[in-house]
Design a protein around this nucleic acid. Structure first.
Length: 519
RNA sequence: GCCGCGUUGGUCAAUCGGUUAAGACGCCUCCCUUUCACGGAGGAAUGAGGGGUUCGAUUCCCCUACGCGGUACCA
């Protein structure tokens, strides 16, 4: 019987969560949901020096925003806690397994100081081998329990000499494993060094912690970025020695998300440089005070963000690009994830957002849009206030009317702002060249007619406007442009009579009169 | 340097030996629209190079080139 699917996302709380991280979460989450499994969040805070306060909370918030909340985790609890590795370390969990490895002869004590390690790398560095490794070839030249006399080792340990525990890799041994995305993969132990398993401070390194915790938390599938592929043999070996490969999770190494230009992994810096967000939400580094903008604050809908991330390295083979979370849960499969990395394309990302804005009813994101409407001109009269603070229904009606013009949520400010306050500027230069006495008279009469009219709807408004133009012998087209600029301020926006209909009689007349006075 | 993983238009990509090599983004043209968009119809643009295997290779194998990742008491 197949065991229950359990997957985990295991970030270290060192900063904001970027695109690649969220996508890893997403693939984990989708896989879990697809197979009726559990999605676990585990915090890998084993590096004290890189710990950033607030980063953990930021991760929770980001996942919540994306709708990718874990079933188990530090805040959620669960039967396999604690879910922070620092807390697990305090329980002696990792030390126990490090000792087991020591007894099995698969690990050893190493007393080398950081300075000694540097010296070693310097000493053995050659043009052919620019980065010498602490491995079978040189470990017998270092200070470790492998070649120190047993009593010397005991003495060092007894005196509390700082030490690490390293894995002992035998040379010329091929490690094979299957990757769900790449198929059969082979590494020779010759290429990897004797990784530190337990650090001087007693904390495990990633290598030990990931294996121990995946075992203890009964993880069935381990998905992580491609950058982990080279150290996979260490993890496989640890699994075989500690728990047996039959209990080992299935592996999948996800392709990287690359810079849009040039090459290499996408980083926060690329976003700054090229002008697009890289993090899920705004992230302010507590040390430098520097803020990196997030997709949320840039005006992305979480649905669009998830959608575009899902398609960055995966597709269902049908050509479909727009997916709801439910559809993704239904069709996602790891074997359709690509092997090669994908360059991030911000234009395409905005297209996804545009599609989602058009697709969803404004009511589902009007509250979000409101948050972008903060900086409005001061309102004075009661009428202005009423205009500036539309009720929910009117607000959403306006958003639905203009949404096809908006790629990002803040675009609504530009596209719909004139519904809620008079334009700050008018594109009079587009009117003046063709402005004349006849038009002046037309609009003056238009005002009178609008004041008398009984109905106030787009259709009748347009009909009477055109009839009036015909009666005056003026082409409607010559009058439409000025009218639009009077109401909107510029040459953009929905059909002008629909705007007038929403603006209302009083405001429409007011704006015409206002601009008329300027001409 | 070494080890590993990759390589279809500018970008995301379909294809699981036989296709006029899909589709999407972006770009260009036209239509619709007396604005801006949406929408619609077109267009330019792709198998890194070289060897094999095969009746037939984008597809399978090898080599080369290129890219990326790793080579930490970081994850």
């Amino acid at each position: 019987m197949a065991r229950k699917v359990r997957v985990r996302f295991a970030p270290s709380p060192t900063g904001g969560l970027h695109l690649g991280g969220v996508r890893t979460v997403l693939y984990n989450y989708l896989f879990a949901r697809r197979h009726g499994g559990d999605f676990i969040l585990r915090i890998e805070d084993t590096d004290q020096s890189r710990y950033v306060p607030g980063a953990e909370q930021y991760i929770f918030d980001s996942l919540a925003w994306c709708g990718l909340e874990p079933d188990e985790g530090p805040h959620k609890g669960g039967a396999f806690g604690p879910y922070r590795q620092s807390e697990r370390k305090a329980l002696g969990i990792y030390e126990k397994y490090a000792k087991q490895l020591l007894e099995q002869g698969h690990a050893y004590y190493a007393f080398d100081t950081p300075e000694e390690l540097d010296a070693m790398r310097e000493k053995y560095k050659t043009p052919e081998n620019p980065s010498p490794q602490y491995n079978f070839a040189i470990r017998h030249k270092m200070r470790n329990s492998l070649h120190l006399p047993p009593d010397e080792t005991q003495k060092l340990l007894a005196s509390g000499t700082p030490h690490t525990i390293r894995i002992k890799l035998e040379p010329n041994h091929d490690v094979h494993f299957t990757d769900m995305i790449r198929g059969a993969v082979t590494f020779s132990t010759n290429g990897v060094d004797d990784k530190v398993l337990l650090k001087t401070d007693g904390m495990p390194t990633y290598h030990l912690a990931v294996v121990v915790d995946d075992y203890l938390m009964q993880i069935s599938h381990a998905f992580r970025g491609e950058e982990w592929l080279p150290s996979a043999p260490v993890h496989i070996l640890l699994w075989t020695w500690l728990f047996g490969v039959d209990k080992m999770p299935h592996w999948a190494h996800l392709p990287l998300i690359l810079k849009p230009d040039g090459h290499g992994k996408l980083s926060k810096r690329d976003g700054d440089r090229l002008g697009f967000p890289v993090f899920a939400m705004n992230w302010t580094d507590p040390k430098t005070g520097e803020t990196a903008t997030g997709f949320r604050e840039t005006g992305f809908l979480p649905q669009a963000f998830v959608n575009l991330l899902a398609l960055l390295g995966w597709n269902d083979g049908t050509g479909q690009e727009l997916f709801t979370m439910d559809e993704l849960r239904e069709s996602f499969s790891m074997d359709r994830v690509h092997k090669g990395g994908a360059k991030f394309d911000y234009e395409k990302a905005k297209w996804f957002n545009h599609e989602w804005i058009k697709w969803l009813p404004a009511s589902s994101y009007s509250d979000l849009v409101r948050t972008f409407f903060h900086e409005q001109p001061a309102t004075e009269t009661a009428a202005e206030r009423e205009l500036a603070e539309p009720d929910k229904e009117k607000f959403e009606k306006v958003l639905d009317l203009v949404k096809e013009r908006c790629h990002l949520l803040p675009d609504f400010v530009q596209q719909a702002g004139f519904f809620f306050h008079r334009p700050a500027t008018y594109d009079l230069d587009s009117i003046r060249p063709k402005w004349n006495e006849a038009k002046q008279v037309f609009f003056a009469e238009l005002i009178r007619q609008l004041e008398l009219g009984t109905t106030w709807e787009a259709g009748p408004l347009e009909t009477s406007f055109k009839e009036m133009a015909a009666a005056k012998g003026i082409k409607a087209g010559e009058l439409l442009a000025p009218l639009r600029i009077m109401l909107v301020g510029g040459k953009f926006g929905p059909p002008v009579f629909e705007i007038a209909a929403i603006l209302g009689r009083e405001e429409t007349i007011g704006r015409i009169r206002h601009v008329l006075g300027m001409l």
